Amino acid sequence: MVVSAASEVVRRSHPLAADVGDTQVLLDIEQGLYFGLNAIASSIWRRLEQPVRVDALCRALEADYAADAGRLEADVLAFLAQLEAQNLIDVRG
């Protein structure tokens, strides 16, 4: 499924997460893979604990990071697409 601003996303329960300094590391035991997330990606991952619409997620991030709305949405959509490709999130809508 293609992630869009109208999609609702939520993280899956199977990856284990641990904070390592300013980054967060995800370990997906099912796939035998690990992922390192920078500070902004870690912030997004934490916000995906509960289902959230992508447009609402972007608005919250804009407030926190004072980022350009168009650029931020494009970056968030690209990151969410990567998470979905690795089977780390569920996407609805």
Rank of each mutant, 00 (worst) to 15 (best):
M1I: 02
M1G: 14
V2K: 15
S4G: 10
S4E: 11
A5G: 01
A6C: 00
A6T: 05
S7P: 01
S7N: 05
S7Y: 04
S7I: 03
E8S: 02
E8P: 00
E8W: 03
E8Y: 02
V9A: 13
V9L: 11
V9N: 07
V10D: 02
V10N: 01
V10H: 02
R12K: 14
S13K: 12
S13A: 15
S13R: 15
S13L: 14
S13T: 10
H14Y: 11
P15N: 09
P15V: 11
L16Y: 09
D19S: 10
D19G: 00
D19P: 00
D19I: 03
V20E: 13
G21N: 07
G21D: 09
G21C: 09
D22T: 01
D22I: 01
D22W: 00
T23N: 05
Q24K: 09
L27T: 08
D28N: 14
E30Q: 15
E30W: 10
Q31N: 10
Q31S: 15
G32N: 11
L33T: 15
L33C: 10
Y34I: 05
F35E: 12
F35A: 07
F35C: 04
G36V: 11
L37Q: 08
L37H: 03
N38I: 05
N38S: 10
A39T: 12
S42C: 05
S43M: 12
S43G: 14
R47C: 09
L48R: 06
Q50R: 12
Q50M: 10
P51R: 12
V52C: 08
V52Y: 00
R53F: 04
R53K: 14
D55F: 03
L57E: 13
L57K: 13
C58A: 15
R59K: 15
R59C: 05
R59V: 09
R59M: 08
R59S: 11
A60K: 07
A60H: 06
L61E: 13
A63E: 15
Y65F: 12
A67L: 11
A67Y: 09
D68P: 03
A69M: 07
G70H: 08
R71Q: 13
R71P: 02
L72P: 06
L72W: 07
L72Q: 02
E73R: 15
E73G: 11
E73W: 03
A74L: 10
D75M: 04
V76I: 14
L77R: 01
L77A: 05
A78P: 01
A78H: 10
A78M: 04
F79P: 02
F79H: 09
L80Q: 07
L80W: 03
L80G: 00
A81T: 15
A81D: 15
A81G: 14
A81P: 05
L83W: 06
L83T: 04
E84N: 13
A85Q: 14
Q86M: 07
I89Y: 03
D90C: 06
V91L: 02
V91D: 01
R92P: 00
R92L: 00
